[in-house]
Structure formats: C-alpha cells, structure tokens
C-alpha cells in the first residue's frame, strides 16, 4: 500500500506557496497585484483513461505586474474528468480475465509559477500570452463492482496559455477573464490495466479578476 498524502496539508503548502510571495511584494502596491478565479473546462488528450471533457474544475492565480506588459505570479488549479466504460472482458494477464464495467475518475492538481505578456494594453481589453510551470498531483481511480483501484503520483507541469481580460471600468479593479490552454504533465499512473505515462490536456477558463 502506498503512503497516502494528506490533502489538507498539501493544500496548506500550496496556498502558502501561492499567496505569501505576492502578498509580501504587494505592500503598498495594490493596483499591481491582481487575483483571478476561474471556472475551468478540461479535456485530457489520448490518455485512454478518462478522455472526456469535464466541467469540474477551477483555477486560481495571483500575479504581480513587474512592468506595464509583464506579470509574474503563482497559480493553482484542479480538475476532475470522468468516463464510464461499459461492461467488457479485460485481460489482466495472459491467464486472468475480468468482466466488469468501470467508472473512471481522473483528478489533477497542478500548481507553480506563471508569467504573462500583454499583447495589447488597452483601457478595457488586455489580451495576453502566458505560460505556467510547476508540479502536478494526479490521482486516477477506476471504480468497478463493489470497490475499485487507484494510483496517484507527482510530476512536472507546463502549460502555454492564450487569453484576455476585460475591465468594464477604467480603474481595472474588477474584470472578466477568458483563457485557452494546453498543458503537459509527466505523471505516471496505472489502474486496473490502463497505464498513463505523461498526459496532455486542453481546455479553457472563464472567470473574474480583481
């Protein structure tokens, strides 16, 4: 049995990592510090596990404008994708067979650093290109029968991103955020007979920035 990680402790570390640096930098410079909270739609690509678009995710960002065009900061997001697999006979080994249906659940939690460059610094409309990099925690679970099996692990994470922010007012204190992304994670997991070695996702985010 693998040692299991306390999610509470992991979240506390991630939150501290995400928040303390911008907070320290932001003493007296509130207008250059901004946060973003997004709802996220995500689709894993070609993992063969739970490659079905899912809406159960959120994205959190804290960024600091180091120049008028460049911002750097930290991020954390999470997502769950599900996929039902109908009843079939699986060859677990050359001699073992298992007939069942499956409900698969793929949970991912990447966090790390981010940088973005504004392509246009308008009063109300600010498109940008950016990139995120860091670590990713993944837990893949296959539920079947009266139980299931899961595997989890850590990997590296990288994600280019293209998006824009729209501010209704000139002071840019509150606005809306839209972004599309691609990401790649190096996590390796295996449940039942489906092993995943590296994983890509595409998706988009819609949220608020303040």
């Amino acid at each position: 049995m693998k040692p299991r990680i306390s999610f509470g402790k992991m979240m506390a570390c991630a939150a501290a990592f995400l928040l303390l640096t911008p907070a320290a930098q932001a003493q007296g410079r509130a207008e250059e510090l901004h946060f973003t909270v997004d709802w996220q739609m995500n689709a894993p690509l070609s993992t063969g596990f739970a490659d079905k678009i899912g809406v159960w995710g959120m994205n959190f960002e804290g960024a600091y404008d180091v120049t008028s065009r460049w911002s750097v900061g930290l991020f954390l997001n999470f997502h769950t994708n599900h996929r039902y697999i109908g009843r079939q006979t699986l060859a677990l080994s050359p001699t073992e067979s298992l007939t069942t249906d499956q409900q698969r659940s793929a949970y991912q939690l990447p966090f790390g650093v981010q940088a973005a460059y504004k392509l246009y610094d308008g009063t109300h409309f600010k498109p940008y290109v950016g990139a995120k990099a860091g670590a990713a925690f993944v837990r893949n679970t296959t539920y079947y029968g009266t139980g299931g099996t899961y595997d989890e692990g850590w990997g590296f994470y990288i994600a280019p991103e293209l998006g824009f922010r729209v501010y209704p007012s000139k002071d840019c204190r509150f606005g809306f955020h839209v972004a599309g992304y691609y990401n790649y994670m190096t996590n390796r997991t295996a449940t039942l007979l489906d092993g995943i070695d590296g994983q890509s996702n595409v998706g988009f985010r819609v949220g608020v920035t303040f």
Binding site: G54, H82, S93, S105, R139, T146
Partner: peptide, 26 residues
C-alpha cells in the same frame, strides 16, 4: 476561497455502474 475549493474532487456517477457481478477467472 482557494483552501475551500481546491480539495474538491468530484465523484463520478456511481449509479451508472451496472448491478451485474464482476467476473474474474484464471
């Protein structure tokens, strides 16, 4: 907000799983 939300792992719909028995052989 982050602490409250980031631990959310959405459960799948277990009602989709059939009631047929899981059959194993070797």
């Amino acid at each position: 907000l982050l602490l409250a939300m980031a631990s959310c792992e959405k459960d799948p719909d277990f009602d989709e799983l059939s009631c047929d028995l899981v059959v194993y052989s070797d």
